[in-house]
C-alpha cells in the first residue's frame, strides 16, 4: 500500500521537473523549484513514517523549512534584479535630482 503512495509521489515529482526543464520564464522555474523542494521533503517524511525512523523524520522537517527559506532568499535577489532593470531610468533621474 505505502509503495503505491511512493510511486505516485515519484510520478508527481516528474511533473515539475519536466516543467523546470522546458520553461523559459525564470519565475515559472522558481515555481517548479518550490514544488520540487516541498515534494522531496514530503517524500522524506513519508519514508520516515514507513520505516519508523525518527532521525530521518526530524531531518525531513528541517529540510522542509530550509528549502522554503532558500526559495525566498533567491526570489528576493531575482526580484531586486528585475526591478532594477525596469526602473533604472526612474532611479537614475531620482539620483540626479538629489545632487
Amino acid at each position: 500500500m505505502m509503495d503505491w503512495v511512493l510511486l505516485a509521489m515519484i510520478l508527481a515529482l516528474l511533473i515539475p521537473i519536466y516543467e523546470a526543464c522546458q520553461d523559459e520564464d525564470i519565475w515559472q522555474k522558481m515555481l517548479a523549484f518550490a514544488s520540487i523542494a516541498t515534494k522531496t521533503s514530503m517524500m522524506i517524511l513519508v519514508v520516515s513514517v514507513l520505516r519508523d525512523d525518527w532521525m530521518i523524520g526530524v531531518v525531513g522537517v528541517l529540510i522542509l523549512s530550509v528549502g522554503n527559506a532558500a526559495l525566498m532568499l533567491l526570489a528576493h535577489v531575482l526580484r531586486r534584479m528585475n526591478l532594477g532593470r525596469m526602473n533604472l531610468g526612474r532611479m537614475n533621474l531620482g539620483r540626479m535630482s538629489e545632487r
Binding site: 521537473i17 523546470a20 522555474k29 523549484f33 523542494a37 522531496t40 521533503s41 529540510i63 533567491l74
Partner: peptide, 19 residues
C-alpha cells in the same frame, strides 16, 4: 540564473536521496 534555480532543484533531489 536558470542554472541557479536548477541547482536548487538538484540540491532538493540530492537531499532526498541522501536521506
Amino acid at each position: 540564473y536558470h542554472a541557479l534555480v536548477i541547482r536548487g532543484i538538484l540540491g532538493a533531489v540530492a537531499a532526498l536521496v541522501y536521506a
